[in-house]
Design a protein around this nucleic acid. Structure first.
Lengths: 220, 220
DNA sequence: CGCTTTATTGAGGGCGGTCAAAGAGCGTGG
DNA sequence: CCACGCTCTTTGACCGCCCTCAATAAAGCG
């Protein structure tokens, strides 16, 4: 039984002991996903809303020519799946083992205007983020793109106890997010590290040694 | 007195003889703009909604380094100014002499859920279009970008009586929309014409001789 | 430890950017 | 109506960034 079937079957809100968060807490269904597992598919109906409790999620779009576009990454606390039309234009996959709360849109309506306004606000943020992503893709160098991505990532998930930032996604995901190839992303990582701006700790962890230098690169 | 002041001053809906359209017709204020005139500015409040009655509009964002990003173009019937936050992140300018209907968001609320739902739907379309624009900018060649732009333009405004499509915007606007330079846009126009796919009629008019060839280029 | 997957590094080439100049459109005023 | 000047567009030459292809290295996993 898929998550979708599960959520649709339970039309009345069912409290879950695993959920957290102001609005979704009392009414969502919590579900686990393995790394790489699909959360929803392209062209699936958009009648469900999702919230990351733990882990990280990417939304992707497969283009007719086989290329792939990553729409965005989502981290604990983020809402996703808020697309406009009746069908999803992006699919969503877990980047690592995830805990996701799923809610039916229709169910939220009965919870009054506050909740509906909350969803509206989240969609509005989504539009803003998409616009920022758009200006990032248009006419910026590979170095600027990666610097901007790293700053944005650090701002959203914050550094760990050792001052490093985890990278839940692989190089290919970053490349497809920034409109670059995996080789260029790798080269830019190497370059930024050689300049002493960042420090790679293994493949999936990075320390931002100079945020101001990164900000400088983004602005230039 | 600016449009803004004008609209804000008239808190109660004032019918205008110049307005058209199902929803905005009865409650909007119609205003004329000269070519190049600013309709609203970056960082202005987002409490007004706009609708193109006649003419064409572009939204632009000035980046800190002086580069410019065109968000989108709007044609008769289109709503614009539907940004999420409290302030505009893009400014809007008339591409040619325009007739624009302006409405206060707050005023629309009193017209019931239908109107509010209409605004919501328009914002949703805005998000969809932004996502399409995003995938267009990421990892597509200059030729693919221009072909896609021309097809999209023709679909939105339709061909004139002689089968040509008017280009209300200049080359620089197209370049800033597609994330290219004006020179590259010009070269692609020349190239597509040499291939017999399009035919330029003056500078501001184009005939799509083979839509299928254009579609082919976009897909490739 | 060996296999698979993922990331890095290198060499070479093409697309699009940059700089520069010529051409076309267009309004103004003689 | 034409001359003039301004802006916008086109074209050319050159170069640099990023893509492509290929090989090596590292990491994850049984």
């Amino acid at each position: 039984m898929s998550v979708r079937d599960f959520a649709v079957a339970h039309r009345s809100p069912v409290p879950s002991p695993d959920t957290r968060g102001d609005v979704f807490g009392p009414i969502g269904l919590c579900h686990s996903f393995a790394a790489g597992e699909e959360i929803y598919a392209q062209e699936e109906e958009t009648d469900l809303i999702y919230r990351v409790v733990a882990g990280a999620v990417r939304t992707t779009q497969l283009l007719p020519d086989g290329r792939r576009q990553v729409g965005d990454f989502y981290y604990p606390g983020d809402l996703f799946g808020l697309e406009a039309g009746p069908e999803h234009r992006f699919s969503a996959e877990a980047l690592c083992p995830c805990e996701i709360v799923v809610v039916k849109k229709a169910a939220l309506r009965s919870y009054g205007e506050d909740v509906e306004r909350f969803i509206w606000a989240a969609t509005a943020r989504e539009l803003q983020r998409t616009q920022e992503h758009l200006t990032l893709l248009a006419r910026r160098t590979a170095c600027e793109k990666l610097a901007s991505f790293l700053l944005g990532l650090a701002d959203r998930i914050g550094p760990g106890v050792d001052g490093t930032v985890g990278l839940p996604m692989g190089r290919q995901d970053i490349a497809d997010y920034l409109g670059l190839t995996i080789e260029t992303v790798s080269r830019m990582f190497t370059q930024l590290q050689a300049e002493g701006v960042i420090e790679l700790v293994g493949l999936r962890r990075v320390r931002l040694r100079s945020r101001s230098a990164l900000a400088q690169i983004v602005m230039a």
